[in-house]
Amino acid sequence: MENIISTFRQLYYTCKEQNKPIYETAIDYEVSRGEYTEYNLRLQAKKSLDAMKEAIKIGLTSTEPSPSGMSGNDCDKLQKSFKKSVSILGSTARKIMTYALATSEQNLRMGTIVACPTAGSCGIVPAVLIAFAEDNNIAEGEQINALITAGEVGRIVSNKMALAGAVGGCQAECGVASAMASAALTQMRGGNIKQIINSAALALKNVLGLTCDPVCGLVEIPCVKRNPFLAIHAVTASELAMADIISKIPVDEVVDAMEQTGKLMSPLLKESSQGGLAKTKTAIILEKNILK
């Protein structure tokens, strides 16, 4: 029997035993399962990374409205504001917010994006990873390592629960994306294995119960703006983890709590657009005007 890695605990001890970083252990594990070679994995990760960069590039300059007409120019507004007024954020944090909006606006235009882990949450991992890499001259190989680290976090969570708003609410989409992004960031910052896993735990723990209640049933409100929010959330988690602040609830138990929370959440709040924001007075008016 192969050595199975389906929990963060198993991941941590495998890394420790073999004295390898998470991305190497993750690659070894994938290769041991016989479906990919290391070359395939790195190539796939590079393709995703390139497509993420392309989506950001197009998203930064586009103001094309979404098919519903409800959004599409927020990234433009944010860039203009950052140019003319003083922000309390540093330049990398500003870039992260901008890139997250650029990507998620591309998504709602039915543009080409990378589902990471899902399309609704597509802005979070690329924004954190690519903005930090650009500002800190992180080589492409290291960016790929960070993306694989993020992928490993998502993979382990997905062993417990499906990463779909209809199954677990937004905690399973943007929440998991944020945990993945924080792990990638902590990896690039030179965090140790404990810090990387802990950053994912902290990010996840603080989005439990996040509902999926999209207005008019569209991946738009609140999804587009949620991407920059949870990108910054990932930074917060990484900062805490780098300070060796520990999640008192171990990460695997956080995942268990998340799974349970997803099950307890009413179907009205899981991508059915039958409750929450989707049933507010304004949402109902929007629905009448848009879905004619």
Binding site: T112, A115, T118, A119, L147, S158
Partner: peptide, 23 residues
């Protein structure tokens, strides 16, 4: 079958929803 890292960090797709569009 367990999911793979590649399932998590892909696909490159037309938006807006992985389950509702790409799926």
């Amino acid at each position: 079958r367990q999911s793979s890292i590649i399932d998590i960090i892909s696909p490159t797709m037309a938006g807006p929803s992985s389950s509702h569009t790409a799926g």
